[in-house]
Nucleic acid binder design. Sequence first.
DNA 1: TGTTAGCACTCCAAAGAGTTGAGTGCTAAC
DNA 2: GTTAGCACTCAACTCTTTGGAGTGCTAACA
Lengths: 347, 347
Amino acid sequence: MELDERKKKILNVIIQTYLDTGEPVGSRTISRLSGLNLSSATIRNEMSDLEEMGYIFQPHTSAGRIPSDKGYRFYVDNMLQDRTEEVTRENEMMVEKVDRLEQILKQVVRMLAANTNYASIITSPQGRRSRLKFIQLSRVDKGQILAVMMLEGNVVKHRVLRIDEDIPEEDIVKINLLFNTYLQGLTLREINMELVQTIRRQADTYKNAIGMLLDAIVEAIQEEDDTEFYTSGTTNLLKYPELGNREQTGALLHALEERQGLEQLLPGEDGEDNNGIQVYIGSEAPIQTMKDCSIVTATYELEEGVQGTIGIIGPKRMDYKKVVRNLESVMSQLDAIFKKDGGEPES
Amino acid sequence: MELDERKKKILNVIIQTYLDTGEPVGSRTISRLSGLNLSSATIRNEMSDLEEMGYIFQPHTSAGRIPSDKGYRFYVDNMLQDRTEEVTRENEMMVEKVDRLEQILKQVVRMLAANTNYASIITSPQGRRSRLKFIQLSRVDKGQILAVMMLEGNVVKHRVLRIDEDIPEEDIVKINLLFNTYLQGLTLREINMELVQTIRRQADTYKNAIGMLLDAIVEAIQEEDDTEFYTSGTTNLLKYPELGNREQTGALLHALEERQGLEQLLPGEDGEDNNGIQVYIGSEAPIQTMKDCSIVTATYELEEGVQGTIGIIGPKRMDYKKVVRNLESVMSQLDAIFKKDGGEPES
DNA sequence: TGTTAGCACTCCAAAGAGTTGAGTGCTAAC
DNA sequence: GTTAGCACTCAACTCTTTGGAGTGCTAACA
């Protein structure tokens, strides 16, 4: 069957109305709202067709219609297409310029949650190929050394190490120089066993301590690949009864709180979509517990190749337009902070 | 009226049974469970007395009795008294020894939540009087300087600074030396305007850059006084319907998620209780949204004067014994990590 | 004097019956 | 192709009933 203009129009009205009210939509309502001047009976016939095509369904006989996942999908795809028409940005948010990445992310995620009334989530950027800019060792106390590593993207890591022997100041400087000579500009992958052996051979003393230091450095760089998740407004989801009873919603919130399976939301290799915006509707969601939700994710870029993900999680009848608008606004602001101003990312 | 032995016994049975079931307790139930061999009628008389004394109440006529806040208070005080008798520690938890304070705290809070099935919260330790151990400046790029500060308690802070002029390596070393000479061993409060002026006068060049660096340092130390809250298992609270409907519980979870008013839980000056364990029951809670909950807090000490707070939030009918046991276990483990082993606290 | 049995009473919760209203599908007429 | 009309369905609400758990009170008992 063909999805002609009139059917599209009716489907749109059904979805919009349902987004507003959260109640099944009946034929009379549409007859009144659609502006098509059709009687409810005609609408009923069309709805019957739409149901057969799988765009809408009845929760039970003698109830109005509700959009199916396929219906939402139609709506969202349509919307993303002529999104450019949307120019009004009544809702300009402001990210204060603070210089700590963590602070910015926390601020953004709260703002998104507050603005949309849905759950909001953001990941720290994932480097994947952080190169070591330099290492700085300092003697703290007897047998304690502070190792500060700066990675590309101005990410700073540090470790306090305890070693058995006490290395005097001047030897630490030597070791520091040795490390920088060999390790500068390398990625984690390039710092392999072989290289570590070479360095240890170079050193005439403190072989043991040097081994520990190298381990710590590798570990610190490795950690940079761990994705941190920040969430906010998860309790907003409690406002939507259609997400299930207390128990189900609880399980959902629990997953969000304990970050269970959230890595599934990170973009795969498949890549491009609408400006990096990806919409998962109901069962399309990569996470089982969220099969009654919709998830909208976007990708922000901190610098070339270093990117993170922002997501909004809400009921299927979420206000997709608003969500997309918010995400775009946030992305442009993050861009402004990182690219132009050149902020100070930091772990 | 006197709270004689028999009344105490009955009150205890009422509370224990209510903790188990969450249902109002009737006279017949007690007559069967108490082991006192009294008829329900006698129990009724006693209960009537207990109600008059304010230890229990009826949610409505012809319902069983529920402990009042005063009743819980009696129970908890009693329990804390002969707590030493409790030796069985069937539930030995293990905190893996990791060397980053943040990781440890997150691990602890999750473990507590998982073990108790209540919401669990932990704060980072509050220094309040961090002294500067040393400062290490490094040149990153043209016009960019990395400042690493180590505070007492091995807390490390860092800032990447952008300055207008490019300071060559050897001058940075000089400035570094200057800073350490003047600032080492001082607390935030001792680094005042006067001192900053003195330092700037000492420097013949780069007055501007030095000013910025000093600002950053002060700010970084200041930040150390910010208390960070980690929570876990907040969704457990959804399991207890007596905490109110969806909306109320939602507000509670929201407060926990956004850390609203949690600083109220930090211990005041009043100080000592049972081994640092403090129990708030219902309306005793310092936070309005938690007036239907009970909160048990404990204080852990990282080193002399540097301490944080652990809290468990649950329904009034929480298993106080178990909660206290868990808190004690965690505290002793934290002690073991920090004091004996000498871990590596870090911001 | 403390304890107990018995009884009338209260109240909640669950189950059932009846009513209402929104909505549908189908058919026949326009 | 569109519409009016009708019979039918079903959730939601209200009202009533019923059963059970629990209480307070009183009178009898040890």
